[in-house]
Simulated assay, not measured.
Amino acid sequence: MRMLLKVQMNTATSNETIKQGKLLEIMETTLKELNPEAAYFTVEDGCRTGYLFFDLKDPSQLPKISEPFFMEMGAKVHYSPVMNPDDLRKGLSAIMPS
Rank of each mutant, 00 (worst) to 15 (best):
M1F: 13
M1K: 07
R2D: 09
L4W: 05
L4G: 08
L5A: 09
L5N: 02
K6H: 15
K6G: 10
V7Y: 07
V7W: 03
Q8G: 04
Q8K: 11
Q8V: 10
T11M: 15
T11A: 12
A12S: 06
T13A: 07
S14Q: 15
N15Q: 07
E16D: 09
E16G: 13
T17Q: 08
I18S: 05
I18F: 10
K19L: 09
Q20T: 05
G21D: 00
G21F: 00
L23R: 12
L24F: 10
M27V: 15
T29F: 01
T29V: 03
T29C: 08
T29H: 12
T30Q: 10
K32M: 11
N35W: 05
A39H: 07
A39G: 05
Y40E: 02
Y40W: 06
Y40M: 08
T42V: 10
T42Q: 04
E44Q: 12
G46P: 07
T49E: 00
T49G: 03
Y51A: 03
L52T: 13
L52H: 13
L52F: 15
F53S: 11
L56H: 00
K57T: 14
D58C: 00
D58V: 04
P59E: 01
P59W: 01
S60K: 11
Q61K: 03
Q61P: 04
K64E: 08
K64S: 08
S66N: 02
P68L: 00
P68S: 02
F69C: 06
M71N: 12
E72R: 04
E72T: 02
M73Q: 02
M73E: 09
M73L: 08
G74M: 04
G74H: 01
A75V: 00
K76A: 14
K76I: 10
H78M: 06
H78G: 08
P81I: 07
V82E: 06
P85I: 12
P85L: 13
D86E: 14
D86G: 07
R89L: 14
R89I: 14
R89F: 14
R89K: 13
K90E: 10
K90F: 09
S93C: 03
A94I: 00
M96W: 11
M96S: 13
S98E: 09
S98I: 14
S98L: 15
S98M: 14
S98Q: 15
